[in-house]
Nucleic acid binder design. Sequence first.
DNA 1: ATATAGTGTGTAATTTTTACACTAAGTAAT
DNA 2: ATTACTTAGTGTAAAAATTACACACTATAT
Lengths: 229, 229
Amino acid sequence: MEQILPHLDSVFSIDCVLFGFDGKELKILLIERNEEPFKDWWALPGNIVGPDESLDQSASRILYELTGLRGIYMEQYYAFGDPNRHPQGRVITLAYYALIRLGGDKELRPISTYAKRANWLPITDLPKLAFDHQKIYDKGLEKIKRRIKHQPIAFELLPEKFTLTQLQHVYELILGKKLDKRNFRKKIVSFGVLKELDEKQKGVSYRAATLYRFDKRRYAKLFGKEISF
Amino acid sequence: MEQILPHLDSVFSIDCVLFGFDGKELKILLIERNEEPFKDWWALPGNIVGPDESLDQSASRILYELTGLRGIYMEQYYAFGDPNRHPQGRVITLAYYALIRLGGDKELRPISTYAKRANWLPITDLPKLAFDHQKIYDKGLEKIKRRIKHQPIAFELLPEKFTLTQLQHVYELILGKKLDKRNFRKKIVSFGVLKELDEKQKGVSYRAATLYRFDKRRYAKLFGKEISF
DNA sequence: ATATAGTGTGTAATTTTTACACTAAGTAAT
DNA sequence: ATTACTTAGTGTAAAAATTACACACTATAT
């Protein structure tokens, strides 16, 4: 049962917590392992860092292989390197979180061979995870909770045009608590980084809400002042 | 000139930004390298992670070898892994910051052979640093700037008993700006994690200030509520 | 006794945060 | 056309937090 993989002498890998938002739930992408150890378990997608890749490049590649998408927003957040975290040798792994809007169709073409399949699972109902991936996930969620209060990362989970209610929903899911509608709007608008569009939401069976867009230029200008939600 | 070190095929190291406060200035510990590459340059202390060490253990060891002290407060904050950051091969390094009070005498017994000497240098006047160590330092400072607003890390830079003025001084140095004395005191006392002692400062040629102690128990109790400076 | 240097304290003005509920607009069904 | 339904969109008052600001006190040194 104990087999030593040749490359597992001292390996450096990257694992990604890829958060996706489909308009209703916050989910993460997990893969079902096809190999020992932890065969048939759910795990965070990850891979070995290539010899000529930077760390960010490597994380990008992993996300690309997983979703077929480039340019996903992501950020490194913690290294996990307990000597026993991998049963077959020393594997130090660097965790990234990434954020993506779901509901398109192109996403999700998992390809690598070590995975049977990949699935978006709601964070409210996650299975047991392989290795120390639960710890990695926990820390990742903690990280975006903190980050969303200061950085405009919520927009990464939304389509380019979104309503204030959708935006609030994202905040509520990540922070794990309800927010007051009026106060939320007051505050988020006061930052001055949202551009109100002339367009309205479409295809809803009730009053359509105004659409907004995140104004990157404006944000860049105000950048000295950090947002503080 | 280009020599390939045998172990530099794919190496994982740790570098530490060790901040020290002597009551007046904020300094970091730098070593003067005795080896190529960057011989005679100043660099952050660092070392290779041992095969059976956890990452934190490894950082502890490095700090111990450098200072002779155990139990220094430290925290991992970022991994630097550009393929070209080390001229002789792929070295991925994990950065830690650490905080220590200076003015004792036991500190500083640098021993490793790759360093000529180690020195505390004020952060206001740092030399050019080897490798990408400037970037690592910058990010470390940024990190503690952020962290000091939410976590009680300032106390790590002070003796167990300290005055409010000393505490304010630490905040000012790290945040890089002057703070209002009355407002600072009001706020810091309102957190309820400082214990006022019956003792006064000694050996000053002016009115002696009251000494305080950081009340860890109390902080642990209030921990749910995060401090927000 | 006097000069010196840092300690320790209060208040008013301003800004930010919080709590809270109803009308307006559009769609769907009849 | 009316009605029922669902979400959008809005204001205000109270409370809390933040800011700006100056002087008398105390200990020591000479």
